[in-house]
Nucleic acid binder design. Structure first.
Lengths: 251, 251
DNA sequence: CGATCCGTTGACCTGCGTCAACATATGTGG
DNA sequence: CCACATATGTTGACGCAGGTCAACGGATCG
């Protein structure tokens, strides 16, 4: 498995950050932009399959995803794995570890990923000098909490078919907001093993469940990825309304 | 079901807050104490079974639990319920709703509960004038996230017996840190229905699972509550190490 | 060209759900 | 004071959603 990490000097100046052009994110004031630009110490390119952060470690950095997909997960001693959430452009990772010391989960890249690198030690400066950004940080943590709440509801109380529908609708909504189109459709770069480990199901049953969604023309499983054909149908099946976020902050 | 809420003028001055005497919480500087004292606008007493916050509402307040137990949950349209986490003294509730607008979960009291009331509109003042408290807010949100991560792992990948063991060990650890002893043992004021809705199981299976833990002398189910007899055994069974929090902030 | 990863399918098994009945406590209105 | 209702816990019989095992096909890659 590829695990190369490449450290570069800063390549994309924050002023030209491609994410800021998206409707989805809130605008920054020039001062904020300058501060963040200063906060950013570099960029990191990571191969698909590489581990970005490991449970049990104490990282000196936190990151914002600039491009690519990843996921957060925890494991039990005997190898059972639970995927907690997915990371997409604009997502901040490692905040939990930065605030509380040791990482309690791992993060892995699903595709090639580019990361903006921040120093954990400079986090305090945000709270001391940039109330708005500090507020954003808390907002970002609350957003993650909200997503986990919905995931818990899903795994605890939805059937396999409903769970799968929820997951795919959820990923679709996020990808769409970021305009991650692949031609006309939104394509999600995960394997059925990832779906299984997210939903708390076995691979075999996951396969059969996804096939049912395929028969209903809601999705199409392409090689190593999934196309969403009918997001409304998925949402209805799961009994999920979607998030109504207008603009989102990001660091 | 009782749903009385009683609003009082401030009774417990923050300077004499009983929670601050606990080893478990970090100390405040006098300035912080004064600010929080000012931030607090009153107290609320709530009966067991009362709903404190409702999914879909926009609350103008957030609260810190001063005494008593409660829980956070979400429901599906057809009535299926998932308990997300439990609230105990020192826990901040309603932050998610305050930051993001609409509440996406409900909160209910398990026992009579006393709450410190804060105005949502004054939250901004914390970020603008009290960097340390703002940091604490983010820390508190990250802590909730960490707990949800572990819950997800539990529901997604642990067996019924392991899940139950984890839940009870988890509640025990928290209760113990707050010195919520009932004589010698820690007693947890929940019904088996709550356990079922937390673990994503049916009541019948929950009953049989708890019975097994009882046969192993790890717990004893008293009327409407649970005594923990062997927390180490529960943790080992669940494959859970516990949280190693030393001191915790609270607002 | 074997090795590895990923998806697919069928046969069979089991952990947990559902249904149903019953026990005990507590409360409530008459 | 009784009659009844509701909340909680307990237990057994039975069914099914989802797990496990096993085999196979296609794609990709050193």
């Amino acid at each position: 498995m590829a695990t190369t990490k490449t450290r570069n000097s800063q390549r994309t100046p924050c002023e030209q950050c491609p994410l800021r052009k998206l409707e989805h994110f809130r605008n920054f004031t020039p001062e904020e932009l300058e501060f963040v630009s200063n906060f950013k110490t570099g960029e990191l390119a990571v191969d698909a399959g590489a581990t970005i952060l490991v449970e049990g470690s104490h990282s000196a950095h936190l990151f914002t995803v600039l491009s690519g997909w990843g996921f957060r997960y925890k494991m039990l001693d005997d190898g059972r794995r639970q995927i907690l959430n997915y990371m997409m452009p604009g997502d901040l990772i490692g905040l939990q570890g930065s605030l509380m010391g040791e990482m309690q989960h791992s993060i892995e890249a699903l595709s090639p990923v580019t990361l903006c690198v921040f120093e954990r030690d400079k986090l305090g400066g945000i709270f001391r000098n940039h109330a708005d950004l500090a507020y954003d940080l808390t907002w970002i943590a609350a957003r993650e909490e909200r997503i986990l709440d919905e995931n818990l509801l899903s795994i605890g109380r939805r059937s396999a078919l409903e769970r799968a529908a929820y997951l795919l609708a959820f990923l679709y909504q996020r990808a769409k907001a970021l305009q991650l189109f692949d031609g006309q459709r939104v394509s999600i770069p995960i394997t059925q093993q990832h779906v299984a480990d997210t939903l708390g199901l076995s691979i075999v049953h996951t396969n059969k469940t996804l096939k049912k969604l395929g028969e209903r023309k809601m999705i199409r499983w392409a090689d190593k990825g999934c196309d969403i054909l009918d997001d409304k149908g998925l949402m209805q099946l799961a009994g999920w309304d979607g998030y109504k976020e207008k603009k989102r902050p990001f660091i």
